[in-house]
Design a protein around this nucleic acid. Structure first.
Lengths: 108, 108
DNA sequence: AAGTTAATTAACTTTTTGGTTTAATAAGTC
DNA sequence: GACTTATTAAACCAAAAAGTTAATTAACTT
């Protein structure tokens, strides 16, 4: 569910804003060219995904970033990291070598 | 676009499979309880997002993982990492302190 | 108590997504 | 050339997503 919550650019922008600190719903809505209701719905999606939480302060609901699901995404990525670390550079260099025609020379 | 491609569990499973090496469309479709056509569509979504590429070998289209977009997700996560590293532990410890009532004692 | 501000709920519309089945394309085999 | 295998394309459908406006709830301000 985390990744589908992150699929929407508005929601990612909201998270980026919250990385700078707490903000109310209307503060979060301000930069967007859409109704407050629409933003409120985005916040609910983020909240269901555990990516934010809401407090209460009088009539405001200050939202704050909850990092756990993002950390899980980070963990999920772990299995793919070897594909872009040094290992891959070596793999690609090797592939390039093969492409150049040394394919059938076992000494390479 | 990458994150919406990653939002679907079937597509993530396909990527996990491809992390183990190339596979044809029907090989990739085999584990799923859905039509081959559906899987073929998922592959097109992944391809458009740059997460896989397809080759040609006779009537097969061997698919392989393309790591660049995943790396970009990893980069995107970078701005959030401080939220779950040591810094956060300290933040949380500090917050806990405040909760315990030392809020108004400047010596803490 | 009347009015304002902040946010959510409800009802509705449009577009996108994820699936289906049937038909078409393209390569390999008999 | 006819048949089978692998894959994609086309047409369609149902459910989910992303937005709207209008109404409701709840707290603060006069």
């Amino acid at each position: 569910m985390t990744l589908s919550a992150l699929a929407d650019p508005t929601r990612r922008a909201i998270l980026a804003r919250l990385a700078a600190g707490e903000a109310s719903v209307s503060e979060l809505a301000e930069p967007f060219d859409m109704s407050l209701v629409a933003v409120s719905k985005h916040l609910k999606v983020l909240e269901k995904a555990g990516l934010i939480s809401k407090g209460r302060e009088a009539q405001w609901r200050p939202c704050r970033l909850e990092p756990k699901p993002l950390r899980q995404v980070d963990d999920w990525l772990e299995s793919y990291r070897l594909f872009w670390s040094d290992n891959l550079d070596r793999l690609e260099a090797y592939a390039a070598l093969l492409q150049k025609g040394e394919k059938n020379d076992p000494s390479n």
